[in-house]
Amino acid sequence: MTRRWFIVPVIGTGTKGDPYRVKLSIAHSALIPSNPDGTPRFNWALCLVSAMDFAALDADVEVEPFPGVSLDDQLSSIPAAARNRIQTALINRGVDLTGIDLNSTVRDVVERVVERLDARLDHRKMQVPE
């Protein structure tokens, strides 16, 4: 099993039969901050996903994969097309990428996503089975 990070749409209506959740049916941990009334603050979430095969997820146009094998990978090591895709996706979601450059790591970008969602949270606390 491999673990990778994704930006995934939040679906559902918050009911027992249709809970707010990410659009995933495989093992994951999702960062879904709530409004005081329990509704999701955003219509997307940061997800750590564990799977043997990510082909279906990579093919889903609604899901934005974080490029790179590990959080320590520098953005300069990532093909430009993949880098540009996630950059556009994050800017469209209001993530502040000021100061992020080719010397930044995937971790630096993930931390900016967490700051956008809820600065009190910590991506290091998200864990799924390997």
């Binding site: 559902g12 918050g14 009911t15 027992k16 809970p19 707010y20 959740r21 990410v22 995933l24 093992a27 994951h28 941990s29 999702a30 879904i32 709530s34 005081p36 009334d37 329990g38 509704t39 999701p40 564990s50 998200m126 799924v128 089975p129």
Partner: peptide, 14 residues
């Protein structure tokens, strides 16, 4: 998962 004011959110699954 979490229930907040009756709204249910699934946070992690395996």
């Amino acid at each position: 998962g979490k229930l907040v004011g009756g709204s249910y959110t699934q946070l992690a699954l395996a």
